[in-house]
């Protein structure tokens, strides 16, 4: 299908690249602005910058423990992703078999998909307080694991359901225990499904604000998103600092994305294929 250069084809190119500009230019403007002094931002926000400096960045890093926030976010995201994927792989493996009451189990596991979890603001807040994990990274991490479990189970189980059962049967005949079958046979070939689920969970957890906000009080458990939110008020008079802080907060995701573009895109693709 080689597109010929017709009028409609030209229109298509214009539309595609116009969308690209609309989507990406604001981010470039943000990055550029983060290197400019505040005065210049107000007097001439769009002219080409005359002074580029790292002053905003050093001011932000000096006044805020950005690396602590980064660590906190990595921690809650990592814990939630590991819990979700482990639990979902086990559940997916269990559901590859026939057992009594499986229908009800599957129903229960998909229950969470129907629930917009922000409705659980009060219940989660009370629960986390009751178990003594308020203002604690584990409280946020476990909440994230809970919220994202249904989608993880759906993606992983969906993928495992497409695997041929003959594999398991032959492993069984060879005398493998069910744990060995899971670890040596099913797990290795389920990697695409697991990667997709992981990408979903990591993006969700990394970017979550609502629960991180209500379950946090001090710097020790503040995530990057909660920190960015506070910049809006903290740096009210100095937008240039706020820009630098935002760039610092989004930089890790951009770096990871540019390194893993192919895995992420093909991961999403593998998971979305069955609908």
């Amino acid at each position: 299908m080689k597109p010929k250069l017709t009028a409609s084809c030209v229109m298509m190119y214009i539309f595609l690249y116009l969308m690209l500009i609309v989507m990406i230019v604001p981010f470039l403007w943000l990055i550029l602005s983060s290197f400019r002094p505040n005065m210049e931002l107000f007097s001439e926000p769009f002219s080409l910058p005359r002074h580029l400096s790292l002053a905003n960045y050093s001011a932000v890093l000096a006044s805020h423990p950005m690396f602590l926030y980064l660590f906190n976010t990595v921690f809650v995201t990592g814990v939630a992703a590991v819990i979700d994927v482990t639990v979902a792989v086990c559940a997916g493996y269990g559901c590859m078999h026939v057992f009594k009451g499986k229908g009800f189990v599957v129903f229960l596991l998909s229950l969470g998909l129907f629930i917009p979890t922000n409705a659980f603001l009060v219940p989660y807040y009370i629960m986390v307080n009751k178990v003594g994990l308020y203002d604690n990274l584990w409280g946020i991490a476990l909440t994230y694991a809970g919220i994202n479990l249904p989608i993880t189970v759906m993606v992983v189980r969906g993928y495992m359901d497409t695997l041929p059962t003959e594999l398991m049967e032959s492993a069984h005949i060879d005398g493998a225990t069910s744990r060995q079958t899971l670890i040596h046979i099913v797990l290795p070939i389920s990697v695409p499904g697991i990667v997709t689920a992981c990408v979903f969970v990591v993006i969700q957890c990394w970017n979550e604000l609502l629960f991180a906000n209500i379950l946090n009080q001090s710097d020790g458990s503040r995530t990057l998103q909660v920190a960015i939110r506070s910049f809006l008020t903290t740096f009210e008079a100095n937008y240039a600092y706020a820009f630098a802080a935002m760039v610092l907060a989004i930089l890790p995701t951009i770096i990871v994305y540019s390194l893993l573009t192919n895995q992420i895109i093909s991961g999403m693709t593998a998971g979305a294929v069955k609908g």
Binding site: V87, C90, V98, L111, M127, G146, L149, L182
Partner: peptide
């Protein structure tokens, strides 16, 4: 293995109960 298969779903069920049914 039918009966042991059920046990693999228990962690997920427990979390679903804790984070969806109870709330």
């Amino acid at each position: 293995r039918g009966s042991s298969a059920f046990w693999y779903t228990v962690p997920a069920l427990a979390m679903t109960v804790a984070f969806f049914v109870v709330p």
